[in-house]
């Protein structure tokens, strides 16, 4: 009898702590980046810094300039948003979460022109990098990261 109350309190505490821990805010950062070898004009954004080494190895460029970005906090997992620069836009349509990842429909536009359409399962622990068109002496790179 006397053990029941502490036992129930323990169960409730564990349940609520697990419940609280299992509901973190999920934010997806999407960025339009121009990778170049020209001298840096501004500091590399923090979001790019995290994968700067990977981008250097992948594309062979040393500088990464952010030309457009969007940060979306997902509440239902079924939201859509737009990351834009002057000429490019990335439309992201989240279609819910499944198996530790968000299913995203992505559309890359150059002004009104649809350049690329893809569907990806974006994992929290794994950024998505898309190589876009050549721009001047650089390269358009799209990055999506779950924060």
């Amino acid at each position: 009898m006397r053990l029941r109350l502490p036992l129930l309190i323990a169960i409730l505490s564990v349940a609520f702590s697990i419940g609280g821990a299992s509901l973190p805010e999920q934010t997806v950062w999407s960025g339009l980046i121009i990778a170049t070898n020209s001298p840096p004009t501004e500091p590399t954004p923090a979001e790019v810094t995290q994968i700067e080494g990977t981008l250097r190895k992948l594309f062979g460029y040393s500088q990464f300039q952010l030309i457009g970005e969007a940060r979306k906090t997902l509440k239902t997992g079924e939201e859509d948003w737009l990351a834009t620069s002057k000429y490019f836009s990335l439309h992201v349509d989240s279609r819910g979460e499944k198996a530790d990842a968000y299913v995203l429909n992505l559309k890359l536009f150059q002004e009104q022109k649809l350049l690329l359409e893809t569907k990806a399962r974006l994992s929290k622990a794994s950024p998505l990098v898309i190589r876009g068109p050549q721009v001047g002496d650089g390269q358009l790179v799209i990055v999506l990261v779950v924060q």
């Binding site: 169960i11 409730l12 349940a15 609520f16 697990i18 419940g19 299992s22 509901l23 973190p24 999920q26 979460e97 198996a99 530790d100 990842a101 968000y102 299913v103 649809l114 350049l115 690329l116 359409e117 893809t118 569907k119 990806a120 399962r121 974006l122 994992s123 929290k124 622990a125 794994s126 950024p127 998505l128 779950v146």
Partner: peptide, 30 residues
Amino acid sequence: FAICTVLVFHDRTPSSQSQYLTQILEYRVD
């Protein structure tokens, strides 16, 4: 109620310790 809630939300929420890589499911250019 708390246990049921935890079980339901635990199934729905992505784990912060996910080891899965992002997957490309479809792609297309015009």
